[in-house]
């Protein structure tokens, strides 16, 4: 592993230790209740006993959003190396190529807007 990556890994590890350590400190110093009525550890639902589970099926519009995200995120993944190679020399061709790619994508974006995929109904 190159020294730069070792340093980055060490940084992330220390960050993880700090994050977990704070919770551990709270475990040690936190008070503990002597009596635990069974209703105490229920999830909150305005003071009533929770009605059923919250692990339910959900509205599909979130699926459309996730789909749009994947499309544009992959697009960005393609743009990133392209952006690095842009320069005065040979850049014109690169611009045309990316223009075609993004153009197709924008057509799809326009279609999604017209179909109402981006409006929450």
């Amino acid at each position: 592993m190159s020294p730069q990556w070792s340093a980055a890994l060490a940084f992330v590890l220390v960050a993880a230790v700090v994050a977990v350590g704070t919770l551990m400190a709270a475990r040690v110093f936190g008070v503990k209740a002597r009596s635990k009525p069974p209703s105490r550890d229920l999830t909150y639902e305005c003071g009533e006993e929770p009605e059923g589970s919250a692990w339910v099926r959900f509205h599909p519009r979130y699926y459309v959003v996730a789909l749009m995200f994947v499309v544009f995120d992959v697009e960005t993944a393609f743009i990133l190396p392209w952006a690095l190679n842009l320069g005065p020399r040979g850049g014109g061709l690169l611009l045309v190529e990316m223009g075609l790619f993004v153009g197709v994508l924008l057509l799809g974006w326009g279609y999604a807007v017209r179909k109402g995929a981006l409006t929450w109904q």
Binding site: A19, L23, A26, V31, R40, D41, L42
Partner: peptide, 27 residues
């Protein structure tokens, strides 16, 4: 105040994910 509070995991919750989420968020 925060560090002294009692640490409660709701009985219905998925306790592993419930407890791992906050430090992961900070990380």
């Amino acid at each position: 105040k925060l560090i002294q509070k009692e640490d409660i995991t709701p009985t219905n919750a998925d306790s592993f994910l419930f407890n791992i989420a906050p430090p992961l968020g900070l990380l």
